[in-house]
Nucleic acid binder design. Structure first.
Lengths: 250, 250
DNA sequence: CGTAGTCTTGAAGATAGTCAACCGGGGTGG
DNA sequence: CCACCCCGGTTGACTATCTTCAAGACTACG
């Protein structure tokens, strides 16, 4: 909110001059470590629908979204797909391959996007020399775990409107962190992708959006969204879902 | 399956003599590293419904389930709970606190359980001296991430019966890995907890069980379950869920 | 043997999935 | 340059599934 919007034109291959540096991996790294990181960072550009990696592919790098946005999904043997996350500038992608050097997910660009690449082998080497970076990585892994848990399981059940509210508030917060408006932004994904992410059908998502619009909670035209009534959104997002499952304290 | 059942009586505080050692953290560690690990492992016993840790609590340790089973859930501000995982012997618990040294989840014993405790501070110190252990930890973190993704999002949608099939097959595989029967085991959690985990209501889970029983897929008495028709279960678990969301290759 | 918590089953109502039609915009090719 | 087409989005109608409320059975435990 008080952060200045990040000017994409000024993003560079060098971490030390990158406007994302306070939000990205090098956060809290000292000068030396950052320079070492710089030395191994590569760059990659994707157009809409280009794949960053596919399920089953051997993994060579971690990635950081520098501009644009990407979608990560898993593919069932039966062929259908399930979106498990949307990633914005500053987000780390590709952690799933840390387990066995092979991607279990597929990553696709939602729009033209720039990414930093961090080759595993060199990153690992640097990590063992730089405990702080190592801990930073662990921390990010754990954070990813938590956010998966929080979101995808807060999204776990309740009505679709409530899940949609959680989803919108999450995006809002993240755009805000990046210095953009948290009240007004563009959804870079289709209704179908949102539906998949929320475990629903495109038509249902469309209907849920319409209800929010009619209730004056959001303003919508196409993929541009304006959050008009944050309070109501928050209220929806924390709405006491049906599932009690309480157990008395010990 | 060909692995011998683990005799709980023979589990010890020493990793090198623990029957879980090939499945647990020390897997693939050499003798020296394992001894070092031994030196920092503590022990803890929980009775049914005892809390291992609670949301918001400062975190001091990672934990490994040695015997028994525990449940991890998140608590919404509104007070309702959502189960996000069940953990069996050999499973690592408490990774969520790696992000900011504070638990974002709550962990409760489902039955009398023994756990190993690994104090962060000493574990970290050992990690920086033992890159292999460090990578092992990272790998486990990533694996946790993957399984969360795979399960909770394969569980993402489709009918409740199909989600239940995925759940049962997951438990079956895990008990099998531990050397127990993968066809016959005891559900250590209530229907309500299963329901919460699957994003449903206890009654619906009960009904889904009944349908599986009537179809001859499982035999049930109370919490003891017998998987009679694995093929059918697998079929259910991979059933082509409704959600297409296909996008043409680039 | 009684009680409390868990599990099952029934019936009614709500939510969301499915099928289908239609609209609108952007890109393509004539 | 314009018309057409394709894809994404919206809306409607119908139906299946799941949630909810309620009652009763079973089990474990005191």
């Amino acid at each position: 909110m008080s952060v200045k919007p990040i000017k994409l034109a000024k993003l560079r291959r060098s971490c030390s001059t990158c406007h994302l540096r306070t939000l990205c991996l090098p956060r809290s790294l000292d000068r030396d470590a950052m320079n070492a990181l710089d030395a191994l960072v590569g760059s990659r550009v994707l157009r809409e629908r280009d794949h960053l990696y596919r399920r089953g592919q051997a993994s060579h790098s971690l990635y950081v979204v520098r501009s644009g946005s990407v979608e990560v999904h898993i593919e069932a043997p039966s062929g259908d797909e399930q979106v498990i996350g949307f990633y914005l500038p500053g987000d780390l992608v590709g952690l799933d391959a840390l387990a066995d050097a092979q991607h279990s997910t597929t990553c696709v660009a939602l729009e033209t996007s720039n990414l930093c690449t961090l080759p595993y082998s060199r990153l690992e080497a640097l990590c063992s020399r730089t405990p702080k970076l190592n801990r930073q990585l662990d921390s990010l892994l754990a954070r990813e775990l938590c956010s998966e848990q929080q979101l995808l399981l807060s999204l776990g059940r309740r009505g679709l409107e409530q899940r949609l509210a959680v989803f919108l508030l999450d995006l809002s917060r993240r755009w805000g962190t990046l210095g953009y408006s948290s009240a007004r932004f563009r959804l870079t994904m289709t209704r179908g992708q949102i539906a998949s992410y929320l475990g629903s059908a495109p038509e249902s998502v469309s209907r849920a959006f319409s209800r929010l619009r009619e209730a004056g909670v959001v303003r919508l035209q196409g993929r541009d969204i304006h959050l008009l009534d944050m309070a109501r959104l928050v209220e929806l997002s924390v709405a006491p879902g049906p599932f009690r499952h309480v157990q008395p304290a010990s």
